[in-house]
């Protein structure tokens, strides 16, 4: 693959990755969010596959396929199944920050991400690294989603976004960490999501719904 194309693909992937994150902030419906998450997973998977093709190495491609399966398909499906149990129209109630403000915050976070990742680009100005700020921005946006969403499931989605962001950053700047680490990490994410899913179920059973504002019993 010629470098220009490679760069283009990486940029496109990173861009759509970030766009998905921004859209998740915008949209409040859980189902739509999950679709966006799947889209983000696909964009994420594109990065190692592109890397592999570019470097002619099968390993990143394999990782990419695993990522695609896990983050593009499996986890969104799991989430969708969990959401099906939600009875209240599967819609995030009024978030803690209104949409306009949220988008402004998103913009600010993106700028911070660009500022923060300057040393990375200076250290190794590869095409991947140049795209890394987008991934990093998505990471920060994910954090924002976790902070501002009130539904348990939304927070789990935020967490998955956060992981996606980290993974994207990793793929973009390093072409992938050692395999065992990557596998371990993915497995951990999977389990974490399962745990969160189970907990959401339990929460729904004991609280009636999954509004996180109810989790204020334990305090000093």
């Amino acid at each position: 693959m010629i470098t220009a194309t490679y760069t283009g693909i990486l940029t496109l992937a990173a861009g759509s990755f970030l766009l998905a994150a921004v859209l998740i902030v915008w949209r409040r419906g859980l189902r739509a969010t999950i679709s966006l998450l799947a889209w983000q997973g696909v964009a994420l998977a594109t990065i190692p596959i592109a890397n592999g093709v570019h470097q002619r190495s099968w390993m990143p491609i394999a990782v990419g396929i695993v990522v695609l399966a896990l983050r593009g398909v499996l986890l969104p499906l799991l989430l969708a199944r969990a959401v099906r149990g939600e009875d209240q129209g599967a819609r995030e109630p009024t978030p803690l920050v209104n949409t306009t403000a949220a988008l402004l915050v998103t913009a600010a976070l993106t700028m911070i991400a660009y500022a923060a990742t300057r040393p990375l680009i200076e250290h190794s100005p590869t095409p991947g690294t140049r795209a890394a700020p987008a991934a990093f921005a998505a990471l920060l946006i994910a954090v924002f989603v976790m902070v501002s969403r009130r539904r348990a499931m939304s927070q789990a989605i935020g967490f998955l976004m956060l992981d996606n962001g980290i993974a994207a950053t990793a793929f973009l700047i390093t072409a992938g960490v050692p395999l065992i680490v990557e596998l371990g990490a993915s497995l951990d994410i999977l389990f974490a999501m399962i745990v969160l899913g189970v907990l959401t179920d339990r929460m729904r059973q004991s609280f009636g719904d999954t509004d996180l504002n109810q989790l204020r019993e334990l305090r000093d």
Binding site: I166, T169, I173, T174, A175, L179, I180
Partner: peptide, 17 residues
Amino acid sequence: LGTVLVYFAGTTGEPGN
């Protein structure tokens, strides 16, 4: 992420197990 960055700071793009 920090671990990844350490890895990144040490390698200049080349992966190593």
